[in-house]
């Protein structure tokens, strides 16, 4: 099994409705075949079992839509405006790193929409891109508060050396296998990162991480599912996946490099090197199930955190920034 924990329970035994006690270990609780699924899976929830009539609230109930509630970039912008959230320059710089990673990845992933291997995957990759873009907006909004800049000023009016993204995020989409490998590495890294950052001494960073970690958890699951399918699917998919792993694994090292900034930040941030063991263990579990060895490739010199980028970033920025820069100061 994939060690993601986010796995929707694969409906063991249970009655049609009791659907899968979420603790996969006890399938035998199988609520007696009630169709209505009255027995909640955890038992902790008193069965709200409103009589059947309530359930018939109408066919619309499968399409009811709500905005939900969660931390949005706009909320952070508001806090910043009110002066309730102001990072130190160090925290700003740190948020810039994470925000740039997410922004560049969103830019890359967005390209798949209308080009994915199957329409369902257009939607799936689109969701991941949107999650990443959301994280980027929150992080850049907060980072900008350190220098009195907005998310858009940071995204559209910085020059290449002012970006702080790591090289992995800048790598081209390649074929679907390359994109999946990149997502696999990224989401296992980001999960460890955001999981720890929920305990950041910086309240805004912690709040952003708390929202992000749940989404990234799903990204782990998505990429792990595909790693397994590509690795164990056909000869072609396996060789493409292996090629993708060899291509991108050199950029793993940069993600876990400590530097002066992370040292100064202490408990506001996470020491990148401290996450490496968990990352290795969890990615290795998936790769083992996929019958793959971790690629034996040398680590590439990074430099993204210091503004030294891959050859790709310039093109990404040229495309991303072109319209905004054509009309500086314009509102959209």
């Amino acid at each position: 099994m994939i060690p993601t924990g986010s796995q929707p329970s694969q409906a063991q035994a249970g009655s049609l409705a009791g659907v899968g006690p979420s603790t996969g270990s006890q399938p035998s609780q199988a609520q007696a075949g009630s169709l209505a699924g009255v027995g909640p899976s955890t038992g902790s929830q008193p069965s709200q079992a409103q009589a059947g009539s309530l359930a018939g609230v109408g066919p619309a109930s499968a399409t009811r839509i709500t905005p939900g509630n969660a931390l949005r970039p706009e909320d952070i912008a508001l806090e910043v405006q009110r002066g309730e959230a102001k990072p130190s320059e160090d925290v700003g710089e740190y948020a810039l790193r994470l925000g740039d990673d997410a922004l560049i990845l969103a830019q890359r992933l967005g390209h798949w929409i209308s080009r994915a291997p199957e329409l369902e995957e257009d939607v799936a990759l689109g969701n991941i891109a949107l999650d990443q873009l959301g994280h980027a907006r929150s992080l850049l909004t907060y980072a900008g508060a350190a220098w009195g800049k907005t998310e858009d000023e940071l995204a559209y009016f910085r020059r290449e050396p002012e970006f702080r993204s790591a090289h992995l995020f800048e790598q081209p989409n390649g074929d679907f296998a390359v994109t999946i490998v990149r997502q696999f590495i990224v989401s296992y890294y980001q999960y460890e990162l955001y999981r720890r950052l929920t305990a950041s001494t910086d309240a805004t960073v912690a709040a952003i991480a708390a929202k992000a970690v749940k989404e990234v958890d799903y990204h782990r699951d998505h990429s792990a599912q595909w790693v397994l399918r590509l690795a164990l699917g056909t000869d072609e998919s396996r060789s493409r996946l292996l090629a993708g792993l060899r291509l991108l694994w050199p950029y793993v090292g940069e993600l876990f490099e400590d530097d002066a900034l992370t040292a100064r930040l202490g408990d506001a941030a996470v020491a990148p090197s401290s996450m490496r063991a968990d990352f290795d263990r969890l990615t290795n579990e998936v790769l083992t199930e996929a019958e793959i060895d971790v690629p034996d490739v040398p680590s590439a010199l990074g430099g993204g955190r210091r503004g030294q980028h891959s050859e790709h970033l310039g093109y990404i920025l040229a495309e991303m920034q072109v319209l905004a820069r054509e009309y500086p100061g314009a509102s959209w």
Partner: peptide, 16 residues
């Protein structure tokens, strides 16, 4: 090329 990140998110969601 969406000219703001908010517009980029909206457009992405729409096309999706």
């Amino acid at each position: 090329r969406a000219p703001s990140l908010k517009r980029k998110a909206i457009l992405m969601a729409k096309v999706q």
